Amino acid sequence: MNTFRDWITGLTTAPDLTPAEDYGFFGPDSVTWRVWSYPTSLTIGFQRAVVVEELDPALVAAVDKTHEIYNRPRTRYDRTLRYFAMVAFDDSASTVKAADVLVKIHSKAVGTDPVTGTEYDANDPDSQLWIHLTAWHSILKAYERYGPGRLSEADEQRYWAECAVAAELQTCDPADVPRTRDGVQAYFERMRPQLIGSDIARQAMNHLLQAEVMLPEMPRALRPATWVVTALLRRGTLATMPRWMREMAGLPTSPLLDTLAWLPLRLGFATVSLNTRLQLALLQLLSPTTVPVAARVLKKVPAVAPVTTTPRAAQARLGYDNPRDAHRELRARQRHRVFGAQQAPSDEGIIESQAILGTVG
């Protein structure tokens, strides 16, 4: 769905609300469902995550090599948001399959970082931990700043415990996921010396802070309003980032503008959160492929089997390897193509993923 007209048409078409097979890994009583289903998540929370991630030189090298965020930013945003929504909300069988395919997708993201001269691999456990924690931390940060507020101590402990469960879908070790706010902050402090505000990182971050690149082309009459809203979202996202991070990336650091953005954003998100139809309309605009996954949660559609499980149990039940060990042959073949034969990696993971995460065209 790439045009504004497509979006209008989509609003009149009810999403597929076929009940999920089960509640996946968290369920209606989880802190994850409460935080991730709030409208701050798919906007500022997710935007913050993809922006902050670019400070990792290995990650931004892979992103810059494909240029997907510049050539197809809306498609990339849509597919990535759908995957994270599946992790949080979808049934266990669908999600472990998507996670398995993600390993194949990441197998082609190997190369040499032009800034540091070191090799990168998107399936590297450290890279996966960085992406995972940045996403979960950003979603919570946006929820607490522009949503209902700070979680209780007990709920926060549950949130990070659930984050560790979700890490079983990545190549990183769930034991490395911090279980407290202080532990998460300590992780980012340990990462800080490794982060680089390189030219390619700054270019990517500034590009991704322009929320309009995630939207379909808007009618001329709506463009001024769109500019105001996206500028407000940009400022709101910047305000969630620590000063040192913004300075590293050469991003604006005005405390006054940060403060001025808080009230309209908080009121706006509160208003959206009260109307399920409005939430789905917003999601349809930002990430149409995510709507069928999130709609079940927002409309409280019961699962066929109202139970939860864990990724490890689902992987064992359905015959999938631990992501760290999955598709070793393909990963080795991709590395040989890039580092040995000096060829481009194959697209087999991307091709297979389109039936799960949406098309890349």
Rank of each mutant, 00 (worst) to 15 (best):
F25N: 02
E119P: 00
S127F: 02
R82H: 13
S94E: 15
E162V: 01
T180G: 06
M218H: 03
Y23I: 04
L81E: 09
D64A: 15
P57R: 10
E53T: 12
G183R: 13
Q343C: 01
L263Y: 01
P345E: 12
V297E: 01
R5F: 05
R333A: 15
R243T: 11
A295C: 08
N123T: 13
L282V: 09
Q128Y: 07
T3W: 03
D325V: 09
Y159V: 01
R331N: 05
T9A: 06
P73C: 13
P19L: 12
R335M: 05
R317M: 11
Q279R: 14
R220M: 08
V228I: 07
S273C: 01
V228C: 00
E247H: 09
Q342D: 07
P323Q: 12
A355C: 09
H137W: 15
R76E: 11
V184W: 00
E212W: 06
I350T: 08
L129A: 02
A221T: 01
M245F: 13
D173H: 12
A341V: 00
A20K: 10
D176W: 03
A303F: 11
Q210M: 03
Y320L: 14
Y38E: 12
P306S: 11
K141T: 14
E119L: 02
R48D: 06
G361A: 14
A316R: 13
R296G: 15
V35P: 00
D173K: 11
T226H: 01
D176M: 12
V177M: 03
A85M: 09
H207K: 05
H207E: 04
N322G: 06
L133C: 09
G361K: 13
D155P: 05
T271C: 06
M241E: 06
V87R: 03
E247M: 09
R5I: 09
I44W: 00
K108H: 12
P178T: 01
D325Y: 14
R335F: 07
T13H: 10
P28R: 10
V184M: 00
T118Q: 15
R74D: 08
T240Y: 04
